[in-house]
Amino acid sequence: MKIAIILISLGILGFYLMDIFFGIGFGVQHFSNGVKDLYLSNSKDILKVSNVVTSIVVNFRGFDTLGEVTVLFLASTALGGILYKKRHHVGERSVLFPASRIVMSGAKLLFPSIVLLGAYVFIHGHLSPGGGFQGGTIIATGFLLMLLTYRNYSVSHNRLVYFESLAGILFISIGLVGYFSKGSFLENVLPVGNMNDLFSGGVIGIIYIAVGFKVAAELTGIIYTVLHEKD
């Protein structure tokens, strides 16, 4: 009976959703005078940034990104609070299964290149696909590989807190410098340079490096906290 009610209501919902979305068409221009052209031309002419998604995330909607990294920070903090355990219970971490020698050597070999790839992705965020969030998560997967392979590998929590808060302070102080010199929060204060250069786009590169460090530290902290959880 419950299943029947759920199936009927899901069927009605699906019918109307499909009716709406089949009607609007796929691969056509939905708005004749959309905000898309404004963003594209502003990003090309004023900011000189190649990757438009980066310029939207960091500059045109930078306050949104500040809120997003705050949400990640809150999630990390809440996870530590929910999974709180008395200090002397934390001992040897149990891995999923003991790693063989091949996996250990391979992990040691792969770890620096994964971190290097992550750093490349967030430094070149305004030139090619990628950015702070992608680079930060790639670095976190590198740490995840080491944590899963080695039983006694540990990440210093103090150092994570240090990196995380330093990156956050850098983000907010760049925003405040823009506020006091140009009149609005996260306004561009540096010269924009040429298109497709590494030093282009003003403050976008610096902010994305800060976001990359912050996201990497937060996600590594989340994984480390959950992985230490043991019956």
Binding site: L96, P129, A140, T141, L144, I222, V226, L227, E229, K230
Partner: peptide
């Protein structure tokens, strides 16, 4: 951009978090 994020987060991190929860 979205594909990079989804490949890093959806494939690696979400899966491993669920697996740790199942182990516990």
């Amino acid at each position: 951009d979205v594909a990079l994020t989804e490949a890093a987060i959806g494939v690696a991190l979400t899966t491993i978090i669920f697996i740790i929860a199942i182990r516990n």
